[in-house]
Design a protein around this nucleic acid. Sequence first.
RNA 1: ACUACAAACCGGGUUAUCGCUCCUCCCGCUCGUGCUUGCACGGCAUGUGGAGGGGAGGAAAGUCCGGACAGCGCAGAGCAAUGUACCGGUGAAGAGCCGGGUUCGCCGCAAAGCAUCUUGUAUGCAGCGCAGUGAAACAGACAGUGCCACAGAGAAUAACUGCCUUCAGCCACCGGGUUUCCGGUAGUUUAGUUCGUAGUUCUGGCGUGGGUCUACGCCUUCGCCAGGGCUACGGAGGGUAAGGGUGAAAACGUAGGGUAAGAGCCUACGGUGUUGUACAGUAAUGUAUGGCAGGGGUAAACCUUACAUGCUGAAAUGCCAUGUAUACCAACGGUCGAGGGCUGCUCGUCCGAACCUCGUAAGAGGUCCGUUGGGUGGGUAGGCAGCAAGAGCCUGUCAGUAAUGCCAGGCCCAGAUAAAUGAUAACCGUACCAGUACGCCCACCGAUGCUUCGGUAAAGGCGGUGUACCGGUAAACAGAAUCCGGCUUACAGGUUUGUAGUUACU
Length: 139
Amino acid sequence: MVKKLTLGKEERLKSRKLIDKVFAEGRNFNAFPFRVYYLFAPGKAIPADKHLLKFGVGVSTRNFKHAVDRNRIKRITREGYRKQKNGLQDLVQQKQLPAAIFLIYTGKELPQYDVVSEKIAVILNRLIKAAHEIPAEAS
RNA sequence: ACUACAAACCGGGUUAUCGCUCCUCCCGCUCGUGCUUGCACGGCAUGUGGAGGGGAGGAAAGUCCGGACAGCGCAGAGCAAUGUACCGGUGAAGAGCCGGGUUCGCCGCAAAGCAUCUUGUAUGCAGCGCAGUGAAACAGACAGUGCCACAGAGAAUAACUGCCUUCAGCCACCGGGUUUCCGGUAGUUUAGUUCGUAGUUCUGGCGUGGGUCUACGCCUUCGCCAGGGCUACGGAGGGUAAGGGUGAAAACGUAGGGUAAGAGCCUACGGUGUUGUACAGUAAUGUAUGGCAGGGGUAAACCUUACAUGCUGAAAUGCCAUGUAUACCAACGGUCGAGGGCUGCUCGUCCGAACCUCGUAAGAGGUCCGUUGGGUGGGUAGGCAGCAAGAGCCUGUCAGUAAUGCCAGGCCCAGAUAAAUGAUAACCGUACCAGUACGCCCACCGAUGCUUCGGUAAAGGCGGUGUACCGGUAAACAGAAUCCGGCUUACAGGUUUGUAGUUACU
């Protein structure tokens, strides 16, 4: 059975509180042209929520002063994530481990879709590794 | 056909796969109610459900004007601040738009005027025309203050050069007198003479201090006076604003008269400002005519005048949920005016807070109110409404020069909130580049203002151009955030219309 590659409202980081929390308490690493913030088990997770993995993107106004360019980067990034996130999502669902990811684009130039897609693959692999380790420590 | 300018419009399309958001319907869910016990109605943050439909712009941008809408405030007056500034219309309104006026340009005209020489249908000044075209935050510069780079004599009670005159000197001539001298005319203020000022020096006189010295006298310092020499500088007073060069701008322009020389001083023509009258126009204003006036520019320098203007903006605002939420502590004040409102300030005006216990009383304590928001502790930043049917869009008739408006018919057209409208691929269309095929055109040198003339060559070129095919490249400015009306700025390429020019044909 082929899983659908969706990215609806439920799968996006929308709460301002949660985003602040990811920045304040989460861990981060660089994967040019992105900077990744992530947080597993962010506090009291909503148990009713079916989607445990949440995702968001940001682009600085300083590097791209036109809204058109910022929108373009966010769309490309979301597209790349949407097509490749299933591995991580399955893992998280299996372990019942809530997770939040936030990417910040730190590059100075408009990227190509291929480049972004490759990078996101790398980022997701690192996150999967991290997700494997975390519950081992906790239990 | 091409080029330039102006205006209006468009701002790639189709298909496939995977996605996002909103709406509607169906299915589903479990809940409630009713009963006809499996249907109806209502509900649902349910549900990786299904189907259908909608989904960025001409500027969504800048946030520069104007509104709608919302909250707070609202006796009034003055000051301040801000804005507006020819007239009429339009519209909800405006620093918008439309029409008109005025001024200033561009442009055109060339009969007459003036100046200049290169004597030409020349250049400059002035003039005429208002056909065409453009610009103007377009009240006031005799209310006041300020500013006007560079250049220039001078940028505002103008005077360098120049022109004229009086005095003084010099020189020439003429007349009187004839030794000096007096009067007149012309020239000149350069040299010289004279005069004046300053410096220096010499001589004489007087005063004064010092040295030598009994004293006279002699020597010497300084000051004053008179005279002489030398050096340096310079005529003095007045009237003018025509000419000169500078500049963005120079004290109305041209001509004539006038004058010592000149000047709107006077006259003619013209122009500007202001004002009276008549006519035209809704008005701004124009035309005609009369009076008066002429020391510039700058108000997008301050300013003056007239008029207008409450403040804050969708993070407005209301409701729901969460929360002990007018939280607790401290200081000060509380029956006379603490304090607050009138959202910049002042006046003025309005509002305006007290009771209990103990005590004879003074007073004490408590609660309450206000201020300071000083200290401590806590909460929210979620949801719904606002929020998508409107000063709405399209088409047409009519009214109007137009902006615009009336009427009729049709249409429903984004609603996100870490913020949707995307990604990939193929094809088509557009523009450009290279290649191939086919068609059309042909040259070089010398002379000449042009027309043209003479010579060479007879096929060549990595030549020009059109059509078709194939391949490649390119496609701008830019992303709604309460909503409208404008303005401004950015913009690849394309379409249409108008005007002007060039070429070809008729």
